[in-house]
Amino acid sequence: MKDLLVYDGSFPGLLTAIFDVYERKLADVSIVREHLYHPDLYATVRTITRDTHKATRVWQGLQKKLATEIIDHFYKSFLSEAHNVEDTLLAFTRYVLGAPPGAERNFAHPAVLEVMQLSKKVHREKHRMEAFVRFQQAADGLYTATIEPDFNVLPLITGHFKDRYADQSWLIYDDKRSYGILYNEKDGQVMEVTAGVTHSATPGEDPDMASIVVHDHEAAYQTLWKTYFQTTSIDVRKNKKLHLRHVPTRYWRYLTEKAMAGP
Protein backbone atom coordinates (compact mmCIF):
# COMPACT_ATOMS: atom_id res chain seq x y z
CA MET A 1 0.00 0.00 0.00
CA LYS A 2 1.09 3.51 -0.73
CA ASP A 3 2.53 5.63 2.09
CA LEU A 4 1.20 9.11 2.66
CA LEU A 5 3.32 11.45 4.77
CA VAL A 6 1.44 14.42 6.20
CA TYR A 7 3.60 17.33 7.35
CA ASP A 8 2.99 20.80 8.80
CA GLY A 9 3.69 22.78 5.61
CA SER A 10 6.99 24.22 6.85
CA PHE A 11 10.27 23.83 5.00
CA PRO A 12 12.00 21.92 7.86
CA GLY A 13 8.83 19.81 8.03
CA LEU A 14 9.25 18.80 4.40
CA LEU A 15 12.94 18.02 4.91
CA THR A 16 11.99 15.85 7.90
CA ALA A 17 9.52 13.97 5.69
CA ILE A 18 12.23 13.41 3.06
CA PHE A 19 14.50 12.10 5.83
CA ASP A 20 11.79 9.60 6.85
CA VAL A 21 11.38 8.44 3.26
CA TYR A 22 15.06 7.49 3.24
CA GLU A 23 15.10 6.09 6.75
CA ARG A 24 12.10 3.84 6.20
CA LYS A 25 13.14 3.10 2.62
CA LEU A 26 9.69 4.02 1.37
CA ALA A 27 9.27 3.45 -2.35
CA ASP A 28 5.68 4.29 -3.24
CA VAL A 29 5.20 7.43 -1.22
CA SER A 30 3.62 10.85 -1.42
CA ILE A 31 4.13 13.91 0.83
CA VAL A 32 1.25 16.32 1.51
CA ARG A 33 0.70 19.48 3.49
CA GLU A 34 -1.57 19.16 6.51
CA HIS A 35 -4.24 21.53 5.24
CA LEU A 36 -4.39 19.87 1.82
CA TYR A 37 -4.68 16.36 3.20
CA HIS A 38 -7.81 14.39 2.45
CA PRO A 39 -8.27 11.04 4.22
CA ASP A 40 -7.23 8.29 1.87
CA LEU A 41 -8.44 4.75 2.54
CA TYR A 42 -5.91 3.22 0.24
CA ALA A 43 -2.82 4.64 1.83
CA THR A 44 -0.91 4.18 5.05
CA VAL A 45 -0.98 7.64 6.56
CA ARG A 46 1.84 8.84 8.78
CA THR A 47 2.00 12.22 10.44
CA ILE A 48 5.45 13.76 10.34
CA THR A 49 6.62 15.76 13.31
CA ARG A 50 9.06 18.45 12.35
CA ASP A 51 12.53 17.53 13.56
CA THR A 52 15.35 20.06 13.29
CA HIS A 53 18.06 17.42 13.51
CA LYS A 54 16.64 15.32 10.65
CA ALA A 55 15.89 18.41 8.57
CA THR A 56 19.44 19.70 8.96
CA ARG A 57 20.88 16.38 7.86
CA VAL A 58 18.87 16.35 4.64
CA TRP A 59 19.68 20.02 4.00
CA GLN A 60 23.39 19.44 4.53
CA GLY A 61 23.29 16.41 2.28
CA LEU A 62 21.82 18.49 -0.50
CA GLN A 63 24.26 21.33 0.10
CA LYS A 64 27.18 18.97 -0.10
CA LYS A 65 26.05 17.71 -3.45
CA LEU A 66 24.64 20.82 -5.12
CA ALA A 67 25.85 24.30 -6.07
CA THR A 68 24.40 27.19 -4.03
CA GLU A 69 22.47 28.30 -7.06
CA ILE A 70 20.69 24.93 -7.31
CA ILE A 71 19.99 24.90 -3.54
CA ASP A 72 18.38 28.27 -4.12
CA HIS A 73 16.13 26.83 -6.85
CA PHE A 74 15.14 24.04 -4.48
CA TYR A 75 14.02 26.44 -1.76
CA LYS A 76 12.32 28.83 -4.16
CA SER A 77 10.29 26.10 -5.79
CA PHE A 78 9.14 25.01 -2.31
CA LEU A 79 7.84 28.57 -1.76
CA SER A 80 5.70 28.27 -4.90
CA GLU A 81 3.27 26.20 -2.78
CA ALA A 82 2.43 24.42 -6.02
CA HIS A 83 0.21 21.41 -5.83
CA ASN A 84 2.41 18.32 -5.39
CA VAL A 85 5.57 20.39 -5.13
CA GLU A 86 6.62 18.06 -2.27
CA ASP A 87 6.58 15.06 -4.56
CA THR A 88 8.54 16.99 -7.18
CA LEU A 89 11.16 17.94 -4.61
CA LEU A 90 11.34 14.38 -3.33
CA ALA A 91 11.81 13.09 -6.87
CA PHE A 92 14.43 15.76 -7.47
CA THR A 93 16.30 14.81 -4.28
CA ARG A 94 16.23 11.13 -5.13
CA TYR A 95 17.46 11.79 -8.64
CA VAL A 96 20.35 14.14 -7.82
CA LEU A 97 21.55 12.19 -4.78
CA GLY A 98 21.62 8.99 -6.83
CA ALA A 99 23.06 10.36 -10.05
CA PRO A 100 26.59 11.46 -10.94
CA PRO A 101 27.58 15.13 -10.40
CA GLY A 102 26.09 17.55 -12.91
CA ALA A 103 22.75 15.72 -13.06
CA GLU A 104 20.97 18.74 -11.54
CA ARG A 105 21.45 20.47 -14.88
CA ASN A 106 19.88 17.70 -16.90
CA PHE A 107 16.80 19.56 -18.01
CA ALA A 108 15.52 16.48 -19.75
CA HIS A 109 14.64 15.01 -16.33
CA PRO A 110 11.05 15.99 -15.45
CA ALA A 111 11.75 16.77 -11.79
CA VAL A 112 14.79 18.91 -12.64
CA LEU A 113 12.82 20.83 -15.26
CA GLU A 114 9.87 21.31 -12.88
CA VAL A 115 12.09 22.62 -10.07
CA MET A 116 13.74 25.10 -12.43
CA GLN A 117 10.44 26.31 -13.83
CA LEU A 118 8.82 26.77 -10.41
CA SER A 119 11.89 28.54 -9.09
CA LYS A 120 11.86 30.93 -12.02
CA LYS A 121 8.22 31.85 -11.38
CA VAL A 122 8.87 32.44 -7.69
CA HIS A 123 11.92 34.52 -8.48
CA ARG A 124 9.91 36.72 -10.81
CA GLU A 125 7.34 37.27 -8.08
CA LYS A 126 10.09 38.13 -5.59
CA HIS A 127 11.43 40.78 -7.95
CA ARG A 128 7.92 42.12 -8.50
CA MET A 129 7.34 42.49 -4.78
CA GLU A 130 10.62 44.35 -4.33
CA ALA A 131 9.18 46.79 -6.84
CA PHE A 132 5.49 46.82 -5.90
CA VAL A 133 5.56 47.07 -2.12
CA ARG A 134 4.06 50.46 -1.22
CA PHE A 135 4.63 51.68 2.30
CA GLN A 136 2.29 54.00 4.18
CA GLN A 137 3.64 55.88 7.11
CA ALA A 138 1.67 55.41 10.33
CA ALA A 139 1.23 58.13 12.93
CA ASP A 140 3.82 56.46 15.15
CA GLY A 141 6.36 56.37 12.30
CA LEU A 142 6.06 52.70 11.32
CA TYR A 143 5.96 52.13 7.56
CA THR A 144 3.40 49.47 6.67
CA ALA A 145 2.58 47.66 3.45
CA THR A 146 0.10 44.96 2.52
CA ILE A 147 0.72 42.54 -0.33
CA GLU A 148 -0.96 39.48 -1.78
CA PRO A 149 1.78 37.80 -3.80
CA ASP A 150 1.07 34.78 -5.96
CA PHE A 151 3.75 32.85 -4.06
CA ASN A 152 5.10 32.91 -0.53
CA VAL A 153 7.92 35.36 -1.19
CA LEU A 154 8.23 37.16 2.17
CA PRO A 155 11.22 35.01 3.22
CA LEU A 156 12.95 35.96 -0.04
CA ILE A 157 12.46 39.73 0.16
CA THR A 158 13.36 40.17 3.83
CA GLY A 159 17.05 40.78 3.14
CA HIS A 160 16.41 43.33 0.42
CA PHE A 161 14.14 45.48 2.57
CA LYS A 162 16.30 45.12 5.65
CA ASP A 163 19.38 46.34 3.80
CA ARG A 164 17.57 49.18 2.11
CA TYR A 165 15.35 50.58 4.84
CA ALA A 166 17.69 50.18 7.77
CA ASP A 167 16.78 53.44 9.50
CA GLN A 168 12.99 53.12 9.50
CA SER A 169 10.78 50.51 11.17
CA TRP A 170 8.59 48.72 8.68
CA LEU A 171 6.06 45.93 8.35
CA ILE A 172 5.20 44.01 5.21
CA TYR A 173 2.07 41.94 5.64
CA ASP A 174 1.02 39.11 3.35
CA ASP A 175 -2.75 39.25 3.51
CA LYS A 176 -3.20 36.04 1.57
CA ARG A 177 -1.09 33.98 3.99
CA SER A 178 -1.92 36.00 7.11
CA TYR A 179 1.57 36.72 8.28
CA GLY A 180 4.09 39.49 7.95
CA ILE A 181 7.66 40.55 8.52
CA LEU A 182 8.37 43.34 10.95
CA TYR A 183 11.65 45.23 11.07
CA ASN A 184 12.54 47.19 14.13
CA GLU A 185 15.03 49.92 13.41
CA LYS A 186 16.20 50.04 17.03
CA ASP A 187 17.60 46.54 17.26
CA GLY A 188 17.96 45.98 13.50
CA GLN A 189 16.10 42.66 13.68
CA VAL A 190 13.38 41.27 11.46
CA MET A 191 10.75 39.09 13.05
CA GLU A 192 7.83 37.16 11.70
CA VAL A 193 4.43 38.27 12.92
CA THR A 194 1.02 36.70 12.48
CA ALA A 195 -2.42 38.28 12.59
CA GLY A 196 -3.08 39.37 16.15
CA VAL A 197 0.36 40.75 16.84
CA THR A 198 0.97 42.64 13.64
CA HIS A 199 1.35 46.08 15.09
CA SER A 200 3.73 45.39 17.90
CA ALA A 201 4.93 48.99 17.88
CA THR A 202 1.77 49.82 19.81
CA PRO A 203 1.10 46.80 22.00
CA GLY A 204 -2.41 46.31 23.29
CA GLU A 205 -4.04 48.06 20.36
CA ASP A 206 -6.19 46.47 17.72
CA PRO A 207 -3.70 44.66 15.46
CA ASP A 208 -5.89 44.92 12.37
CA MET A 209 -3.95 46.49 9.49
CA ALA A 210 -6.93 48.59 8.49
CA SER A 211 -7.05 50.23 11.89
CA ILE A 212 -3.54 51.68 11.78
CA VAL A 213 -3.68 55.45 12.02
CA VAL A 214 -1.76 57.02 9.17
CA HIS A 215 0.66 59.90 9.49
CA ASP A 216 -0.53 63.46 8.81
CA HIS A 217 1.66 63.69 5.72
CA GLU A 218 0.70 60.35 4.28
CA ALA A 219 -2.28 61.41 2.15
CA ALA A 220 -0.32 64.34 0.74
CA TYR A 221 2.60 62.19 -0.37
CA GLN A 222 0.25 59.65 -1.93
CA THR A 223 -1.37 62.44 -3.91
CA LEU A 224 2.03 63.76 -4.98
CA TRP A 225 3.08 60.32 -6.13
CA LYS A 226 -0.11 59.85 -8.15
CA THR A 227 0.41 63.29 -9.68
CA TYR A 228 3.95 62.40 -10.62
CA PHE A 229 2.93 59.05 -12.04
CA GLN A 230 0.24 60.56 -14.27
CA THR A 231 2.35 63.49 -15.41
CA THR A 232 5.37 61.46 -16.41
CA SER A 233 3.43 59.47 -19.02
CA ILE A 234 3.58 60.75 -22.60
CA ASP A 235 0.04 60.66 -23.97
CA VAL A 236 0.86 60.39 -27.67
CA ARG A 237 2.89 57.29 -26.89
CA LYS A 238 0.16 55.57 -24.87
CA ASN A 239 0.48 51.79 -24.98
CA LYS A 240 -2.06 50.18 -22.70
CA LYS A 241 -1.14 46.63 -23.65
CA LEU A 242 2.48 47.08 -22.68
CA HIS A 243 1.42 48.84 -19.50
CA LEU A 244 -0.76 45.91 -18.47
CA ARG A 245 1.93 43.38 -19.25
CA HIS A 246 4.27 45.10 -16.83
CA VAL A 247 1.67 45.94 -14.18
CA PRO A 248 -1.02 43.19 -14.25
CA THR A 249 -4.33 44.30 -12.76
CA ARG A 250 -4.19 41.80 -9.90
CA TYR A 251 -1.47 43.94 -8.28
CA TRP A 252 -3.32 47.23 -8.60
CA ARG A 253 -5.17 46.99 -5.31
CA TYR A 254 -2.09 47.77 -3.26
CA LEU A 255 -0.31 50.06 -5.72
CA THR A 256 -0.77 53.65 -4.60
CA GLU A 257 -0.60 54.96 -8.16
CA LYS A 258 -3.11 52.46 -9.54
CA ALA A 259 -5.53 51.87 -6.65
CA MET A 260 -9.02 53.08 -7.37
CA ALA A 261 -8.16 53.83 -10.99
CA GLY A 262 -10.45 51.98 -13.40
CA PRO A 263 -8.84 49.40 -15.69
Partner: peptide, 8 residues
Protein backbone atom coordinates in the same frame (compact mmCIF):
# COMPACT_ATOMS: atom_id res chain seq x y z
CA UNK B 1 8.82 50.33 -9.46
CA UNK B 2 6.03 51.04 -11.86
CA UNK B 3 5.26 51.56 -15.53
CA UNK B 4 3.53 54.53 -17.11
CA UNK B 5 0.56 54.08 -19.41
CA UNK B 6 2.94 54.45 -22.35
CA UNK B 7 4.67 51.33 -21.03
CA UNK B 8 7.91 52.92 -19.86
Amino acid sequence: HSYTEDGR
